[in-house]
Simulated scan of single mutants.
Amino acid sequence: MLGLVAGLCAGYTVQAGRAPTPLPPLSQPVVAQAKGKAPAPLSAAQDRKVRSDGDLRDMLLKRPAGASDAEYPAGHDGWLSMSEYAESFTRPAGAFRQLVSEEFRRAAVADWREGSLDVRIRLIQFRDERAVASQDALDSAEKWAGEESGHSTAVPGSGTGRVYTGGALDSGGRHRAEAFARRGSVLMEVWLDSDEPIAAQKALDLAQRQWERM
């Protein structure tokens, strides 16, 4: 114990005997502005902020040639209200309250049918001001999909975006594939339902093409 006290005293003595370290001057040298032309501003096609603040429906994949209307079209004129989106959850009332707290901003939707395959794509945008709700929504969606699916594949270039296939049949006895990814404040959801098993490559191709439009 005495050795420890002596060591501490010696340390304080050494520190006290050192000359104080001078602080850097408050005034800093002026950095000369680089010469040359300022870079041109990004175009609307290049600036993701401009794209996501524009008409969200323009970022949706277009219906392929030969496809028909969905049996039960979602939303109105390509838009999905917060209450309509909440209705897609098992507990709509709780989902609605959660969307309010997560600062839901808006959602766009596109759906169509190709033979027995039903396709629905939703882009859900959050304000992401108090928290990054879009990331939380992606994490939640992928958590549930990962537990229910038999196989998952990364969406190239999307970071943590993934496609899920081979899971249990849905409530109607149909095969399902789903994909999720996030670009900025926009969450991408791709849903496929079919009477026949859905090839992982087909689901991945659709998800990849939708991702590239965002």
Rank of each mutant, 00 (worst) to 15 (best):
G7Q: 05
A10T: 09
Y12V: 12
T13S: 10
V14Q: 07
V14L: 14
A19T: 10
T21W: 09
L23G: 00
P24F: 10
P24R: 09
P29N: 09
P29F: 03
V30E: 15
V30L: 14
A32H: 11
G36A: 15
K37P: 00
A38M: 13
A40D: 02
A40K: 13
A40G: 05
A40S: 11
L42A: 06
S43P: 12
S43C: 01
A44N: 05
K49L: 15
L56W: 01
L60I: 10
K62G: 14
K62D: 06
R63M: 15
P64C: 14
P64A: 14
A65Y: 04
A67E: 12
A67S: 14
E71Q: 11
A74S: 11
G75V: 03
D77S: 06
G78C: 04
W79P: 02
S81K: 00
M82V: 09
M82H: 01
M82G: 04
S83M: 08
Y85R: 02
Y85C: 03
T90R: 15
T90I: 14
R91F: 13
A93K: 14
A93S: 11
F96T: 09
Q98N: 15
V100D: 13
S101D: 15
S101T: 15
E103P: 13
A110F: 01
D111H: 04
L117H: 04
L117Q: 06
D118E: 12
D118H: 11
V119R: 05
R120E: 10
L123V: 07
L123Q: 08
F126M: 13
V132G: 02
A133E: 05
D136F: 13
A137M: 13
A137S: 14
L138P: 06
S140A: 15
A141F: 09
K143A: 11
A145R: 02
E147M: 10
E147L: 13
E148G: 00
S149M: 07
S149F: 01
S149W: 01
H151G: 03
H151C: 07
T153N: 05
A154Q: 11
V155Q: 02
V155F: 08
P156W: 05
P156D: 12
S158R: 04
S158Q: 07
S158D: 11
G159R: 08
G159I: 12
V163Q: 05
V163E: 03
T165A: 02
L169S: 02
D170S: 05
D170V: 03
S171Q: 14
G173E: 03
R174W: 01
H175N: 04
H175D: 01
E178V: 07
E178C: 01
A179S: 09
F180M: 03
A181Q: 03
R182V: 13
R182Q: 12
L187F: 05
L187P: 08
E189L: 14
E189R: 12
E189Q: 14
L192A: 04
E196T: 01
P197D: 04
I198N: 03
I198D: 00
Q201W: 01
A203R: 00
L204Y: 03
E212W: 06
R213K: 13
M214T: 08
